Amino acid sequence: MSTTPTAALSEAGVSIWLDDLSRERIETGDLARLIAERNVVGVTTNPTIFAGALSKGERYAEQVASLAASGADVDRAVFEITTDDVRAAADVFREVYDRSGGFDGRVSIEVAPGLAHDTAGTVAEAKTLWERVDRPNAMIKIPATVEGLDAIRETIGAGISVNVTLIFSLDRYRAVMEAYLAGLEQAKAAGHDLSTIHSVASFFVSRVDTEIDQRLVAIGTDEALALKSKAGVANARLAYELYEETFASERAAALLDAGANRQRPLWASTGVKDPALPDTLYVTELVAPGVVNTMPEKTLEATFAHGVVTGDTVTGAYAEAGAVLDALAKVGVDYDDVTALLEREGVEKFVVSWSELLESVGQALGAAR
């Protein structure tokens, strides 16, 4: 019997990754504590997370002073600081990585968000980040924009593990899995060991509900309001159905037989935004074998405190999930418009956070000089 809800979640096949990283968390031992006490087996980062960590600043002061003395510019300083944190976190997770045979113990770092629509630039930065972090349990985050799809294929083809981020629509998710399989085929042709290449596909959840619920309230009918807070979970459940179908295909089977790994679905944006909803909604309603749930600490602690894990809550719910999306279309919610908007906003938010990060590091460099 599991002693905690997070242990039960792990036993149900869900890998718990923390959606946060800071030097303080690494150096104080808090990250190691979460591994030991909360069943955390990975970490994801993004520009917003790094901007938040750097804004507190104290534990970065010595490195910033050294970078300033060496004449480093802002871009160089940010690169050094963030890759150092990811490398250190990867070392904290190395035991998890070894114990799981490379399945978990992963730490993700994202290419600069300004490259979201630049295929060649994304591939080049992905390779640079991979080489600089220099840890087998790192993952490079690449957004699932149209231009990102080719970058995903090329990066996987180069033997680099990838966390695909900012996936909102089912059609784009299909394209992401296609890019992964094509990348594996490219990697195999180049002689890479497929067993060393890992990938997750980060399918966003709560942001879908936030946007769709606003539209349902604006429509205002009883039929529309009855659909509130159902879209995010339904969308993710249908994504898992696509995952099962894709990796049961002959094409995928041939790659798996050659040593490749499945590209696991990762539930992102799992912090509940609506206070009227259960704070563990996007955890307990999305339990399925072989998925990752990357949680902000608040959601992790809520799950640990009172999450009710009853086993698989996804694979038997495909018809119901499809009915939700059909009903949304009938009341006038344009799914394609919603997901396209969320992708644009996702990229824009990370660009803003990255600018804030550059500004804060620039100010720190100036003060150190």
Rank of each mutant, 00 (worst) to 15 (best):
A224E: 13
A201G: 15
V208G: 06
S195E: 07
T210H: 03
R172F: 14
E154N: 08
I167S: 09
L227E: 12
A224S: 13
A236R: 04
F247G: 02
L225Y: 10
R153N: 11
L227V: 08
G220K: 00
A231V: 04
A189M: 03
D209G: 01
V162S: 12
V164Q: 10
G157I: 03
F168T: 08
V162K: 12
G183C: 04
A224V: 11
V162N: 09
I197F: 06
A175V: 03
E245N: 09
R215I: 12
R174P: 14
S229V: 09
S206P: 12
Y240P: 05
T210R: 07
I197G: 10
H192M: 04
R172D: 15
A182I: 05
A201V: 13
S195L: 00
R215S: 10
E147R: 04
A239L: 06
A189L: 03
S249I: 01
F204K: 04
I212W: 11
F168H: 08
A224D: 13
R174G: 14
R172T: 15
A234S: 14
V200S: 08
G191S: 00
N235S: 11
T196D: 11
S229W: 03
G183A: 03
S229T: 12
S206Y: 10
L149M: 15
G157F: 00
V217W: 02
L170W: 01
T221S: 15
H192F: 03
S202D: 09
E147I: 00
L181D: 10
I219H: 10
G157K: 00
A218W: 11
A224K: 09
G159N: 07
G220F: 06
L238W: 00
L170V: 08
P143S: 11
E185Y: 00
G183F: 10
K188H: 12
S249T: 06
R174I: 12
R174L: 13
F247Q: 02
P143V: 05
R237W: 11
A187F: 00
V162I: 14
S202G: 07
